[in-house]
Nucleic acid binder design. Structure first.
Lengths: 180, 180
DNA sequence: ACTTATTTTCAATTTATTTTGAAAGTTGTG
DNA sequence: CACAACTTTCAAAATAAATTGAAAATAAGT
């Protein structure tokens, strides 16, 4: 009895820390084009040992069923969490990928899809404008700028490809090589 | 006379392309935590040979004076554009850093300030929670996760430091080394 | 000190994004 | 197939972010 009280007290800080982590991850996420609820659900699942149901998400984060559902689906799309079915139960439970390396890689991949790929597409199409002006300085400058942007985007792509394709140890070795 | 008409026609596509670039950069920017007007002003200055005044920005982008002013200031804060004074004139003109390498580095630096630094700060403070629980699995797992996040953030920091400190050629060489 | 040109500020408005909640849809079970 | 258990959808409401515009502040010239 006394023991369980102490246990409660001891546990307090851990629970507080987890809560703070959830909030921080939510704020952080919103700076990264991930909406707050989505990031918070993700954080909640990251710190939860057991798979969690939609109702638990609603309760722990105080959000509506619709919101919980939509963002759980989005997290599945991003491949950050997965559906877990408990035998005998119909209700869906969700658990997060816990390997932070994989998490980061998947977030980066999604962001690239939204942020870099469309820009490269546009830049590429703009470089196709007719070259009757090729002698004009203004024209040359513009094309040069587009090329430079594309070159940079290409480097960013290369790095993220590396990231996406390699495993953690491998990437860190490459990184060290690069830094030396 | 005829010549100037042809000149107009020829120039058309370049101007169209520039306009499309401005729009695209605006959309792109908004995926990166940079508001549309800020990104569009930046694009406008990137494709403009001559320094441009607030009034020209307002006219070319169809935005209010307040908006133009605020975002021009923000771009100066980010070190992406600078004030140019024309002798004899009181009005301010602005011109953009044209070196895309530098532009990218500066954007990355600002984004890191907003997105990575505060998160690392929080993670660090969460790792300080009392370790009376050190034997508990749940506690250990949580701390391990925080450590992993920090390790990843640290790697991201290292890469951007490299980026910020090196010049373009140097960085691309490092990149090649890394890729090999 | 006054006038005029220019920039800055910021409360109010507009626009964009997120969230709600209840109805509609789906699925498994007797 | 009817019911209950659960999930999905989406129009409406709430919230957050960007933009306006006009007044206040600043600076330059006379």
């Amino acid at each position: 009895m006394m023991l369980s009280l102490i246990y409660q007290i001891k546990n307090m800080k851990l629970e507080e820390a987890k809560q703070e982590f959830i909030d921080a991850w939510g704020t952080f996420g919103s700076h990264w084009g991930i909406n707050r609820t989505m990031a918070q659900i993700h954080a909640l699942l990251l710190v939860s040992d057991e798979p969690i149901s939609t109702d638990e998400v609603m309760e722990k984060l105080g959000v509506s069923r619709g919101n919980a559902n939509m963002n759980l689906r989005a997290l599945i799309d991003w491949n950050l969490i997965e559906r877990k079915l408990k035998k005998g139960e119909r209700m869906e439970y969700f658990s997060a990928e816990k390997d932070i390396w994989k998490v980061a890689v998947r977030i980066i991949r999604e962001r690239r899809k939204k942020e870099i790929d469309p820009m490269r597409q546009t830049i590429k199409s703009l470089m196709d404008i007719d070259d009757k002006n090729e002698k004009k300085d203004e024209y040359k400058q513009f094309i040069t700028m587009l090329k430079d942007i594309d070159e940079f985007a290409n480097a960013a792509d290369k790095i993220t490809d590396k990231l996406v394709l390699s495993d953690k140890g491998w990437f860190f070795i490459s990184l060290m090589k690069m830094m030396s």
